[in-house]
């Protein structure tokens, strides 16, 4: 089995709160719980950006948390998918225009799936994550495509003749 098939069967989730109200965060936690049970798709909540494939972000980006958000995104290995949970992560929501808020996370990192609602329902989060899985698969395929070299092969007469150089070195010595 290749690494890509593991990634498809068990994408790991990283959750970051970029200044939200906790509402969507507890719904993400409810997704992990037995009723909605997101683990049947092989998803585990990890705390480590270096091991995760899907980044779930909630909250409008506050000015202090945006550096952390970009840093966490940069630490995740390719391929990666970003899901913005809740209307404040998508557009800023009710917090749009407040002096310490940026309107939405897509001003800083590329977002693949937008999940709306205040607060998001667990069904919506699960649906968004399933869409993210399809995008993750597509991104993996793009990444693993073989790339043909476009450079022309080097011709024979431009190469150095090593035997000549060796001869020269011996002569000078």
């Amino acid at each position: 089995m290749k690494l890509s098939s593991f990634r498809k069967k068990s994408p790991w989730i990283l959750h970051y709160n970029a200044g939200g109200c906790n509402g969507c965060d507890i719904e993400i936690l409810a997704c992990l719980a037995p009723k909605y049970d997101i683990e049947r798709f092989g998803m585990i909540n990890t705390g480590n950006p270096k091991q995760s494939d899907i980044l779930l972000v909630t909250g409008p980006v506050t000015k202090r948390s945006r550096e952390r958000l970009v840093e966490i995104y940069a630490q995740m290995p390719e391929p990666k998918v970003v899901v913005s949970c809740g209307v404040c992560a998508c557009t800023g929501g009710v917090f749009r225009g407040m002096y310490n808020c940026e309107g939405g996370i897509d001003q800083y990192i590329p977002v693949d799936v937008y999940v709306c609602g205040c607060g998001t329902r667990p069904e919506q989060i699960i649906d968004g994550v399933i869409q993210a899985l399809a995008i993750l698969e597509k991104k993996t395929k793009e990444l693993e495509q073989s790339v043909r070299l476009k450079k022309e092969p080097v011709k024979e007469d431009t190469q150095l003749n090593r035997r000549n150089i060796a001869g020269e070195i011996i002569k000078t010595a």
Binding site: G20, P60, M98
Partner: peptide, 8 residues
């Protein structure tokens, strides 16, 4: 970290 300026 999550100061948003709601009071203002």
């Amino acid at each position: 970290y999550v100061h948003r300026g709601i009071e203002q």
